[in-house]
Nucleic acid binder design. Structure first.
Lengths: 204, 204, 204, 204
DNA sequence: GATGAATGAGCATTCATTCAT
DNA sequence: CATGAATGAATGCTCATTCAT
């Protein structure tokens, strides 16, 4: 699993080769320079194509940004769902969520970095509605899945609002630190610790 | 404790009145429009001052940004240290860290929002070195304080690298969600849950 | 030979029409207003084009300035070399240098004025190295050519360093005066006097 | 004779100390950065004074520029007249003009550099009339002095217009080259050559 | 489809000059 | 006399976007 797969999954075939190339170089630029600081010209320069071609394929800068952003979001989500399909208890679900998150970030560090950086610009741009809708849908889906398990054996921290934060917060915080170089150990090394800790943190 | 205090603590006196006003309006703009999208003119318009005056006081846009950023960072840090001074065990320290964090964010939501938004631009700008230095110093200080306690009774999750993430991750994740309106309940409501959960998550 | 030829020689073809137009109007502005006082807007206004087009072709103001400067320098040099090719003695060479210089200035007064004005800004700008290199090369070339003749009949003023000044100094001084309106008689009128005088001034 | 003398001659006394200091640093800035590129702030920074003080003494930037320019012009002129007073023939006059010019440039290289650089800005500024008047007066005065001698023994190059150029051209050309570092030998070394050559160049 | 010249609104920044203290 | 905060017009330059070829 790497960035090429994400693009090839979403934009397959020979005809889309330039499209993928543009997206790949745009991803690099957004991460390296920042979303706002990335110019169409900078992307063009890295693809050996023309400004016109970029506009032909994506309409405008926002088009490139959101194409990348939703590709990443979908891929991450898809990965999570595959893992979660095999979970048979809340404990297993928590382990799946964390494991899938860490795996995906380590397998796609560039995309992960981008996801953190691009959320705010996308949330302010013309695709804000689409983003909101997806957030709400994903939130519900996951909530239902988790609540399905929880009527069970263990007592779980009550206000559901904070549940996601307890589960994903430490992993996310560590991954951000890792991607920005503030810590060195790969998130995957601590897979067990993050999962176990999250599980303990939920118990009442 | 509010944004006025932060500015008056750092830039006291009548002479600095315009300086404070510029910073306050800049804070508003950065949060409302985004760091990059904020123009000097927009700030000027909100202060009823002149471009020249802004440049006279801050040199350039980056100067305003970093003045705000380091003011916020210092204030947050100072608040943490005051709280932490009274801690007598690792458990108390964890509760202080989380409590202080949540209190500060709730008391200064605008500043908190700004801190999340501005870190990346500052980390890429001309003050990146200063930011790195502070990060390293604060990291060491806190590490020493926590390790001072940990030689004790309870067994604590081992790799120190992930400790901060376990402690602060859920709170941070929730505060981000709260500031962006994705969740409604005030972080302070869940003070207890975040602290207890974090403490449980650390136990071996 | 006139300013249109200089530009068409260096930037030929239909595609470069706007490029030539920008340079021509820039030349006018630099001479009329001074190099520093010339604004991109002033050039734009005289070409009926857009700021963007100017920057597309020349990158920045310095780019326009140096494009003009080196075009003038090359043309003047080329003219000198053509004349000098036919010289068979030191005396003839001196007459060629002076004649070529006066002819060129009279044929291209705008370019000559510009060459005097722009040297200092170019020498301080980003093309200072290129200018130095050319100066050195041209100096050597001319020195070799002149020394090739001088092993001859007449005794010539010794320190080679001052030779150029003796030859070109009076003509240059007079051309400057003429271009600024301090004297009225065309330099070409005094072709004979300047050449003969220079030749006399060299004899030992 | 050096730059301090020029300023002390024109602005003597303790009261004028700051005035002299400002002018001295302005001279440095104009030469180093160029006339246009020199800012009041740059001058201020080198004098350890305030913007207000500079405006108090000179009114505006043009005021500093012209004060310096006319100080230099007067000093150079005064030096020439002292030398010329002792001349008893045209030959001696030519030797005095050239000798005085070379001496002055070597004694005051900073002022000489400035004189070459500042002429054009001054000629375009609010003191253009004063500059023109002085040029005309000086021209006449010198013309009369030279013509007074020339009714004599030797036949001299006829069109009076070109006479100055023949006399001063080589020296000026060499001094410019020397001040900009293109040649190394001090102009004073070639005092004899320049004078003798000029004299030869005038003979009919 | 592809190209890249052209557009022009918009922005950060500069700097001479003023004036209240 | 001295100070330096304040002013704001002016400038070089950027960059997303369009469109003729």
């Amino acid at each position: 699993m790497n960035k090429y797969n994400i693009l090839e999954n979403r934009f397959p075939g020979r005809r889309a080769a330039l499209k993928r190339e543009i997206l790949e170089q745009a991803l690099y630029c957004f991460n390296e320079l920042g979303v706002e600081a990335t110019t169409i010209d900078a992307i063009k320069a890295r693809c050996d194509t023309s400004v016109g071609a970029i506009y032909h394929h994506f309409g405008n800068k926002e088009g490139i940004l959101s194409a990348l952003f939703f590709a990443a979001l979908d891929d991450q989500r898809q990965h999570l769902e595959q893992e979660l399909a095999g979970a048979n208890s809340l404990r297993e679900a928590v382990f799946c969520i964390i494991g899938s998150y860490l795996d995906w970030v380590v397998a796609n560090p560039e995309w992960a970095r981008f996801l953190y950086q691009a959320r705010s610009p996308v949330a302010k741009g013309p695709f804000q509605e689409e983003l909101k809708d997806r957030n709400i849908q994903n939130y519900r889906k996951l909530k239902d899945q988790l609540l399905g398990f929880s009527k069970g054996d263990v007592k779980i921290v009550q206000p559901f609002e904070i549940l996601f934060s307890l589960i994903i917060g430490p992993s996310e915080n560590y991954c951000r630190a890792w991607l920005s170089g503030r810590v060195k150990g790969s998130p995957q090394e601590y897979r067990g610790e993050f999962a176990e800790s999250a599980w303990r943190s939920l118990q009442w």
